[in-house]
Structure formats: C-alpha cells, structure tokens
Design a protein around this nucleic acid. Structure first.
Length: 419
DNA sequence: TCTGGGGTCCTAGGGCGA
DNA sequence: TCTGTCGCCCTAGGACCC
C-alpha cells in the first residue's frame, strides 16, 4: 500500500501556524519579487484568485477583500517541511519526499492494518507536532494514492481528509470521477489531445490500448496507465543527489549594462557553487542564460544560453564565477533591456570521483579557501564573503515587502507572546 | 511600472568509431 | 580502401511536476 500525504495550502498554512489570527481569513503567498500568487488559503481560492495570478493585476481584489498577503519565506517553509517529513517517517521507514509539501509513504507488511486508522494517527501527530493540516490518500499504487489524496481533500468534510482506495469498485469510481486534466502526469498538452479523442476522465484513459499510449505518450504515459490500473509500476524514488543545480532570478527592474548583469551572474554562480559544495558534488559544465522581458512586446526581444565546459570538475566559487563570465561575455548583446538571467551547473559528480585532466588542473588553494568561506558564511550569515566580481557596496534586493519573520530558524525572530 | 524558481525524465537525431 | 550498419554518446527540445 502507498500513501500520499500532502500539506494543505502549505505556504499559507505555515504563515497561519505562527499567526493564528489568520485562521478563517483569506491568505495568499507571493513568488520571488512579489510577482505571482503561488499559494492560497481556501478562503482566497473561494474569492476566485487563480494560481499564478500576477500580484499587480489583483491588487484591487486584495484590497477589496482584505486579503492577507505574504512574500515567500523559504527559510520558514523549508524548516516546517522538514519537521512534517520527520514526523511522517515515524510511521514507516519507506518515505519519498516528493516536494516541499508532499511525501509518498510505502507500507510493506501492513496487510491486516486499518489504513483509515493509520491515517488518523498521522493527522493527529502532524497537527500536534507542527500545526500544519494534511490530507492523506491510500491506494495500492502511487498514481492511485494521488487520486485518493485528491478525493480526501475535495470531500474533506465527508472523508476527514483521509481516503483509502482498497477495492476495485472504489478504484473505478474514483477514476471515473477524476477529469483527465487532473490526472498526475497528464499535463496540458496531453489532456488537450486526449479530450479531442473523447477521453474525458481517468477511467477512459485506462481503457485505451497499451500500444496507443506507448506510441503517443511514451513509456512515461504507459507506466502511468498501468499504475492507474492498479498494477504497481512506479516505485518510491531514492533520494540521490541532484543532477543539476540552478540559481536563476528575474530582476526587480530591467538591466542594460554589462557590469550590472555580470554582478548578478557572478552571484548566481557563487550560489550554485555553494549548493554544489553542500551536496558534496562538483560540476563539469555550466550554463549561463539571459533574456529580455517577454511581456514587454514594445521592446526588442533577445535571449540566449550557452554551455561552458570546465577544464576539470570543480565546485570552487572562484572557478565557476570565471566560467560564468566567459559564458556571459559570449551571449551578452548591447542595447537590450534584460529581465532575467541564471546559472545552471550540470554534469554533476560526487567529490570523491574526480576525473583529472592531463593538461590543466585545479588550483589546490581553492578547496581550503572555499572551506573557510563556507564556515564564515555559516557563522555570520550568507553572502558575508563576496567575490571580486560581486559588488561590495551594492545590495541587489528582491522585492519582499510582506515578508514574515523566520520564526523557527532565527532566534532574533522567534515568536513573542504578549500575556 | 509590476508576470517565480527549481527540478526530472524521455525522445529524436546527428556524430562517430568499430 | 571504401562503404554500410550498428550501437553508443551527446544535445536540444518537449513534456511533466511542485
């Protein structure tokens, strides 16, 4: 049996844990730069605020309905997430953390257990331990547990946030209820194609022939079909190291000068290098990209990316800044208003599997320097140590006008209770 | 004026050596 | 020495997820 546990309106719920006066009121959380709506409480959903809504377009709606707005506070959400995941792992050792707010659990040898009861215990444990509300779906496969979770959430008053698919009858009923575009693994494109063929729900999808699905939706679609049929095909994924690491940002305004963009790109490269060292990996390729604002049809558009190969595997900030600059020089063009840039490191290998080059080698001083940089940044806060190409005086700040405190990870910002 | 960020997997097609 | 075929590797692009 698999379970999918999903935190309800996760970011909005995190804000509520430390500010209970928000309970019952509409809450939205915005993306970086306070750009789009990325999380909504049920009350905000009921007011018709869609996912991804640009904040500036909905400003009046926010004011009209007194909606509580928050900038995204990843320090808080990340910490709350790991607390939830820790509690869930008390129920079975087989846990796949699927995203910041979701986990698959696998129950082997629980044949005679009552999953409804296990679900109740999980809910109580997580609510008591973190204050985060969760929904739980149990089913014999991962894809079906996603479906069960959806039912648990959709009919929460009847299901109490827990639903178990444990019979053929329930499976078919659930699949007939689920619209094709809501099936996990069927995105917009495939949903459109399937609808054109009169396939409107998940059950109809499972009635297609394997050959057709394989031919038109690749093995990915076929695996999904089998999983929905109740034949376990997708298993828990082991949490290996990441295969690529990215740091990309939209700029608050638009940038034109090479120097300004270079500063930003250097910072992205430094950030990638830090993430690489954190997971004890190194990269042998780095991609730099930049592009103009696609929403501004009145301005000339330009966008390019370039992959730069490193001479040896590295996670040195000094090296990566250098390579990133080589890439940027190759793709930067004068005369455009740039809105977004990023650095992505690829071809990752563990630190202890190093393929040396005959002709070039890393500077042996980098490793101890990076160790010191990481230690200082850890002790005194991130980005205290900067590199030459990053500006010392200038602070590039994301727009975060509605940022809540880091209640659970910073002692200076701990919650205060007035008696 | 203002529209996010970070990932994974799969396939097709070309280059290239055996 | 030339040519055809096969399989591997790499890359770009597409589709999906949260």
């Amino acid at each position: 049996m698999y379970a999918l546990i999903d935190c309800n309106n996760f970011y909005a719920s995190c804000e509520r844990v430390f500010n209970p006066s928000l309970n019952g009121k509409p809450v939205v959380v915005l993306s970086n730069n306070d750009g789009c709506v990325i999380a909504r409480s049920n009350e905000a959903k009921a007011l018709g605020i869609p996912m991804g809504a640009p904040a500036f377009e909905y400003k009046k709606t926010f004011e009209k309905y007194n909606i509580n707005i928050f900038s995204s506070n990843y320090a808080l959400y990340g910490d709350m997430s790991s607390r939830v995941m820790n509690l869930l792992s008390e129920f079975t050792p087989e846990v796949e953390i699927y995203s910041i707010d979701e986990a698959f659990l696998k129950f082997i040898g629980f044949d005679f257990f009552n999953f409804q009861e296990i679900g109740l215990q999980m809910k109580r444990r997580v609510t008591k331990g973190t204050g985060i509300p969760i929904s739980i779906g149990f089913a014999p496969t991962k894809a079906l547990s996603k479906v069960a979770n959806r039912i648990a959430k959709k009919f929460s008053e009847r299901t109490n946030g827990i639903y178990v698919i444990d019979s053929e009858e329930k499976r078919i009923k659930a699949l007939k209820w689920l619209s094709i575009e809501d099936v996990w693994g069927i995105g917009r494109k495939h949903a459109k194609r399937l609808k054109a063929l009169q396939i409107y729900n998940a059950y109809q999808f499972t009635q297609l022939s394997d050959d057709w699905v394989r031919k038109n939706m690749s093995v990915v679609g076929l695996r999904l079909k089998h999983d929905l049929e109740g034949k376990p095909t997708l298993d828990l994924e082991t949490t290996a190291n990441k295969k690529m690491i990215a740091t990309t940002r939209s700029f608050e305004g638009m940038l034109t000068s090479y120097q300004d963009i270079r500063e930003r790109v250097s910072t992205f490269a430094v950030s990638c290098a830090e993430k690489l060292r954190h997971q004890q990996s190194q990269c042998h390729m780095l991609m730099v990209f930049l592009h103009t604002n696609g929403f501004r049809k009145d301005l000339p558009q330009y966008g390019r990316n370039i992959v730069v190969k490193t001479h040896y595997p590295t996670n040195s900030s000094i090296d990566l800044v250098t390579y990133a600059e080589v890439g940027l020089q190759a793709i930067y063009r004068e005369g455009f208003h740039y809105k977004k840039a990023g650095v992505i490191v690829m071809g990752l290998t563990p630190n202890n599997q190093k393929q040396y080059s005959l002709f070039t080698s890393e500077n042996p001083k980098h490793e101890p320097i990076m160790n010191v940089v990481d230690r200082l940044n850890k002790a005194y806060g991130n980005n205290k140590i900067k590199f030459g190409s990053q500006s010392l005086g200038r602070q590039w700040k994301m727009k975060q006008e509605k940022l809540s405190p880091r209640y659970s990870t910073n002692i200076q910002e701990i919650i205060t209770i007035n008696a």
